[in-house]
Write a protein that binds this DNA or RNA. Structure first.
Lengths: 235, 235
DNA sequence: CTTTTTACTTATGAAAATCTTAAGATTTCC
DNA sequence: GGAAATCTTAAGATTTTCATAAGTAAAAAG
């Protein structure tokens, strides 16, 4: 399944290669802008909204590097470089500070497609809508959590929390009033990567949190235990 | 923006409340199955594919708990419990092992909608397509990485890697042949949660990895540094 | 053209901070 | 009272930080 109808730029002076790539990409439902020289490509970069560029290193007029540079200066989409000589790989990747991937000729079309998809996946991932939708500050009844600075204040006194402690408190606070199971806490804080962990770890961190909060808190137990279910912070 | 056209079950013997919820949910483009008693609801659960259930605790015939139990035995979608008395919250959450959230009456409709969305978001997140698409084993030229057991073998000798070391090596290997910048490594391994970290941390872990691999490796440098770009493992 | 500077990136070692584990103690529920 | 869940504690493992060394590329000087 193709993720989105991305606009992709192809530049290669070997017409046969450019045409071949075009066919394969169109077959995957991508929109293709194809050029055999650098000048036209640069023009396209200025005027079209692009999601990815596939550039040949060697071009007759402008070379691939300067196109690469121009993209990096003004735009943010991924770049795949095509290079002819196997041995030059490291040099080239060292030089082209902006390229996200490279492929040596001759290449298998399926591999190219795979790499295009991988790049687009990464691109859409890191440029997704989320950032602006997320809250960066939680504040209520004397407790303030700032996601940007990772700072926490309780009754105007600063608590120095470790990263994990902050993350746990954040999850609890953003679900304020609701009970959060330790499994869910674990998922939210540690992510989906680890799974072997016992939820005793969560308990220990909860304990440390309580210790730190206790010194500055009016209420002795900010974080409540709901037996058989999990933890919660009251509204 | 509504994420998907989810099928939602409502069960409440207070018809006015059930009707109200129905209006609000339909307004958000959800499909609604509404019932005023438990029996019909149970029938619906058997015959329809549901994404979420909103259950009143007190029902005339079958009570909310047993519906909750039946859902948990056979199905996997989230449940929101509606309860009338504020004081009973903890008891109820303790009892209803299966419920994912609860709301006390009277509630603000907007809050209910928000919670429905939150539950669906979580649900679709943890039940996404990914798991089966991911590779769980990488093996090439003497190096074997097993994602399930988190074990690593180099030339038939086991390397004992820490979780972070394993994760870094995994990313490098799954991008074999391509240079991975330390920023990208950081994103892949630590996730999007932290951002204050210096990428010297990555370096140190790379160093530890190299140390451990060096003992059992034929090649002195499995992980290559590409100056100005990042790290890579050759094909 | 070769050598020396300069600015910058990467590597290293060791200490400090943080996290996880495990085992025993305590609490809660029935 | 007994079983199960939660808490406590501290040792051991892991991760991060910091200071500093080593390395690389390009510019300046010889």
């Amino acid at each position: 399944m193709t993720l989105l109808a991305a606009n992709i730029l192809i530049v290669d002076d070997e017409q046969a290669i450019a045409d071949l790539i075009e066919v394969y990409l169109k077959n995957e439902n991508y929109n293709v802008f194809k050029f055999y020289n650098g000048k036209d490509a640069l023009n396209c970069i200025e005027n079209e909204r692009l999601e990815l560029a596939i550039l040949d290193v060697m071009l007759p007029d402008v070379d691939g590097f300067s196109i690469c540079q121009q993209i990096r200066e003004k735009h943010n989409f991924p770049i795949i470089m095509l290079t002819a000589k196997e041995e030059e790989i490291d040099k080239i990747t060292g030089l082209t500070l902006g390229a996200d991937d490279y492929i040596t000729k001759p290449f298998r079309p399926l591999e190219l497609i795979a790499r295009v998809k991988a790049q687009l996946r990464r691109f859409t991932k890191y440029n997704s809508i989320e950032p602006n939708q997320k809250e960066h500050l939680i504040a209520f009844s004397g407790l303030v959590l700032d996601m940007d600075t990772h700072e926490c204040t309780l009754n105007e006194k600063k608590l120095s929390l470790t990263p994990t402690e902050f993350a746990i408190l954040w999850v609890l606070c953003s679900n304020r009033g609701r009970v959060v199971s330790s499994e869910e806490l674990f998922h939210e804080v540690w992510g989906d990567k680890y799974f072997t962990n016992s939820n005793n770890t969560v308990m220990v961190h909860i304990r440390h949190l309580r210790e730190k909060m206790h010194d500055n808190a009016e209420h002795p137990k900010y974080i409540k235990t709901v037996w058989g279910v999990g933890y919660k912070i009251d509204k």
